[in-house]
Amino acid sequence: MYNIAVTGTGGGVGQSILKSLCNTDYNVIGLDGDQFAAGLYSSKTSYIIPYANNDNYIEALLKICKKEKISLLFPGLDAELMILSLNRELFKSIGTTVVVSDPDVVEISDDKLKTYSKLIEAGVNVPFTEKLKDFNPSEKAFPLIIKQRIGGARSKNVYLVKNMIQWETVINRIGNKDSDYIVMDYIEGDEYTCGSINLDNSCKGVILMKRILRDGDTHKCFTVKNQIIENQVRLILDTIKPFGGCNIQLRLKDNIPYVFEINARCSGTTAARTLSGFNEPKMIADFLLKNIEPSFQIKEQTILRYWKELIVENEKVDEIKNNGFLQNQTPSFL
């Protein structure tokens, strides 16, 4: 049995990967920096790890991967992507493949100005994007989106600005950190999140979901088929050449897709995609570990998301807090 580790199991992406690998023949090890991460109590084995900005992060992960004979490591947090990408070879030398793209792909995805330039270069439709500090708005430029240039998740620090008064309010709130922000045209239209698997330098499959957001997370989603969107997504993937999962977000206006974000990783919607017949983590694992070419049958359906409770015995919380790991748990679907 192959062992697969997943980081960030307290968050939506990590938990989505866990859910997708549950009920497969892979043994999943859950990792997180927080003892209260739900995913730690839903994997057979789990470990507390340092956060990605900690100097010991890579060493700690290498130690766990070596001890648990991890074949694949799926990152679940954006903050981990670059440091893992830069150190992929270290993991390779102990037999662990990190499912992460090249550093330049991670950088393009993380930096919205670089995303914009790269996509413009490739002939992709993108909302006009500029550095906030270089932008002078006129009344007719609104509505606009102001958001962090680098990183950002779940609509944190994202502002929809509809007029000059709102503009001034947001600019005052941002203060002297204006060089950390970009301004982007707001596109009216349905929003789509598009998953993909990319192996051997080619896109092996795409799934499209129209979605309704709540607090920046996908709240309701609808698996759809749309050749115009799929062609645009494939054009992007052919241009940036990611490795593993890659998530593309866009809005459709007048039947033209406008791409505004790329995440070079699996997504919080990965589990919903799995339920629609497109299991990104399993297809990636099957290809990399068993040489099985990805195949899928996408079902057009509606997926509604809801909160669910997980009961954890206090002894288990104490155990992982004191020992740093938990073993012999019964894996449970979150």
């Binding site: 830069l86 070879e89 550093p103």
Partner: peptide
């Protein structure tokens, strides 16, 4: 060197 990407 870890932040730069260690070389084996």
């Amino acid at each position: 060197i870890t932040k730069l990407g260690r070389i084996n």
